[in-house]
Amino acid sequence: MLVDSHCHLDFDVLADDIHGVLARARENGVGHCVTISTRIRRFDTVRAIAEANGNVFCSVGTHPHNAHEELDITIEEIVTLSEHPKCVAIGEAGLDYHYDSSPRDAQAKGFRNHIAASRITGLPLVVHAREADDDMISILEEETGQGAFPFVLHCFSSGAELARRGLALGGYVSFSGIVTFKNAAEIQEVARFVPADRFLIETDAPYLAPIPHRGKPNQPAFVRHTAEKIAELRGVEFETIAEQSTRNFARLFSKTGLAI
């Protein structure tokens, strides 16, 4: 069985065909998905999708693009929303210096609030990091020094040093369809050296469809291509990657109750 540990089923291109999307996922061996929150004020939408589908879980959080819009939401409010039975993670939150859609100080403050919520609840923090490696390392190391929290560097597209430092702090690294791209040599190298018990796979659907579907809307069914590429890079069978990534998911996202 495969798990898509990060997708956005509430985005229109997927939400408009939710039953077809999930059916195709099952046909490709994807047993579970986590639909990820990008705005806490829209949490009701992702929660409703999780409630309506037994094999779908959700998270609660504010994407760094929207950090400045939701700084008034308290840590306590995030914690309270996360108590829903189908909510299994905090985030996604972090730093995105590629678009800088939100002021960097707002991104950092929002990120630290989500770290606090993760630390309080014990739920894994889904970390978004783009072109912000140095600041991301600084915040993760500083915050871990104040108390450990579980986290995953989702849709990994950063430098190898961030992966190494994140792993040293106990974090996980999640690979998306980017790892199948021809120009992704550094990410492919990270996929080779991440320990077998510390990696996840995801789609980030509807974005970043893997080869051979690049340029099309992504969907959870396509996570299989990412698993196949990682198997190739690591020189192991596809079934090994499927088993390892699913076990890792169950360990990190323990609230799902999936058997390890």
Rank of each mutant, 00 (worst) to 15 (best):
residue 174 S to M: 04
residue 243 E to N: 13
residue 50 A to R: 05
residue 152 V to K: 08
residue 171 G to Y: 04
residue 118 S to F: 08
residue 255 K to P: 05
residue 80 T to A: 15
residue 153 L to M: 09
residue 239 E to C: 07
residue 199 F to G: 01
residue 113 N to F: 14
residue 170 G to V: 12
residue 153 L to W: 10
residue 150 P to F: 01
residue 175 F to I: 01
residue 129 A to V: 14
residue 87 C to Y: 01
residue 47 R to G: 02
residue 98 H to Q: 15
residue 234 R to I: 01
residue 37 S to E: 05
residue 156 F to G: 07
residue 164 R to F: 08
residue 188 Q to H: 05
residue 118 S to G: 12
residue 183 N to Y: 06
residue 72 D to W: 02
residue 257 G to S: 02
residue 31 G to K: 13
residue 16 D to I: 08
residue 166 G to R: 08
residue 235 G to E: 06
residue 222 F to G: 05
residue 179 V to D: 01
residue 241 I to A: 05
residue 4 D to M: 04
residue 191 A to V: 01
residue 53 N to M: 10
residue 42 R to Y: 12
residue 136 M to G: 06
residue 193 F to I: 02
residue 11 F to A: 10
residue 62 T to V: 13
residue 163 A to F: 06
residue 186 E to Q: 13
residue 53 N to Q: 03
residue 34 V to L: 08
residue 36 I to F: 09
residue 42 R to G: 15
residue 135 D to S: 12
residue 139 I to F: 07
residue 177 G to D: 03
residue 213 H to K: 04
residue 61 G to V: 02
residue 258 L to Q: 10
residue 85 P to F: 00
residue 93 A to D: 07
residue 22 L to D: 06
residue 41 R to C: 13
residue 144 T to W: 15
residue 67 A to Q: 05
residue 190 V to L: 03
residue 76 E to L: 07
residue 106 A to E: 03
residue 92 E to G: 03
residue 236 V to T: 12
residue 22 L to R: 06
residue 223 V to L: 03
residue 140 L to Q: 03
residue 18 I to W: 11
residue 181 F to Y: 14
residue 72 D to T: 04
residue 155 C to W: 09
residue 42 R to M: 11
residue 55 N to F: 13
residue 185 A to P: 07
residue 45 T to Y: 12
residue 170 G to H: 10
residue 11 F to V: 11
